[in-house]
Design a protein around this nucleic acid. Structure first.
Length: 292
DNA sequence: GTGTTTGTTATCAA
DNA sequence: CTTGATAACAAACA
């Protein structure tokens, strides 16, 4: 599941697409794109990628259109990977296997390739999504701004100060810590894996009421959120399930996780068995001895 | 065949 | 107004 570190890894890799010109777009599964497959492909023909940003788990490809559509020369492609989305970039010159280009462990295009962006010069960006929850939307710059405005503070920026974090928690006092941290309008970009990992590092149970957290615990959480996300970005994200980077390769954070997916394994601090429960409707892992 | 996996949104209930 | 619970989306896996 791509969360902030995984999407950030993809964003960094995709910077090499800046200035690239789209020759054509192929939409294989219309429901993935917006407004319609026909419009999507027609408007983007000949467009130039000017910049690629990340907002929480959302990627924003800014494009300059070849022609003006209703006075709009610029537009944004918003890409959300949701749970199983992938963006794989390959070059025509790369290794070919069985008639298909293969990069890392990922062969593209495959049965889950729903959109293809073919660029001048032989590069192609593939949007794959096994479960088809993700989307690729062509929107105006103002619509993109509105979508981004709904998101909260980026946890790896200076804007995420301790005081800002305290305010976010205060506005969610009645909720469980897990529900509060998964709310993208507060801290943006945390998902189910990193919420459990941050809580473990802060020695706080995800099921605690926000109201019950001490000032010290708030500070520990603030530090844990920043450090665990930064560590994962350093390792190019978590690698399990269907996450791959733009080369089709897996990330290396998976072996650094302390609790997620470690039910019944001994806690690395105290050897107590990791417990798994449900909080805020999500699978939740914690050490019953270390976390209070 | 059953339960589990999760990001986001919608909907209903307390 | 707040919060939670549930469903929906879809497909693989144990």
């Amino acid at each position: 599941m791509p969360e902030l570190p995984e999407v950030e890894t993809i964003r960094r890799d995709l910077q090499r697409l800046r200035g690239a010109v789209l020759d054509h777009v192929v939409v294989r599964l219309p429901k993935i794109v917006a407004p319609t497959a026909a419009t999507f492909a027609r408007v983007l023909k000949g467009a130039t990628v000017t910049r690629i940003d990340r907002h929480a788990k959302l990627l924003a490809f800014h494009v300059r259109l070849q022609k003006a559509y209703q006075r709009h020369h610029d537009a944004v492609i918003l890409v959300h990977l949701k749970m199983t989305g992938q963006l794989v970039l390959r070059d025509r010159r790369q290794l070919v296997f069985g008639g298909h280009p293969i990069v890392g462990a990922t062969v593209v295009p495959n049965a889950y390739t729903h959109v293809e962006f073919h660029f001048d010069g032989g590069r192609t960006l593939y949007f794959n999504d096994l479960r088809q929850f993700g989307y690729v939307k062509l929107v105006t710059t103002s619509t993109a701004r509105e979508a981004v405005a709904k998101l909260g503070v980026e946890p790896l920026t200076p804007a995420f100060s301790l005081q800002v974090f305290r305010d976010i928690l205060k506005a969610r006092q009645g909720r469980t810590l897990k529900a509060a941290l998964l709310d993208q309008a507060g801290v943006a970009g945390i998902g189910n894996i990193y919420v459990d990992e941050a809580c473990y590092r802060a020695c706080v149970r995800p099921g605690r009421r926000v109201k019950s957290l001490s000032s010290t615990e708030q500070q520990l959480l603030w530090k844990a959120i920043r450090s665990v996300l930064a560590l994962s970005v350093k390792h190019r994200g978590t690698s399990f399930n269907t996450y791959v980077d733009t080369d089709g390769k897996t990330g290396a954070f998976w072996r650094h996780r302390r609790v997620y997916g470690r039910k019944d394994e001994p806690c690395q601090r105290c050897k107590t068995q990791i417990r798994k429960t449900v909080v805020a409707g999500r699978g939740t892992h914690y050490c019953p001895h270390c976390q209070h």
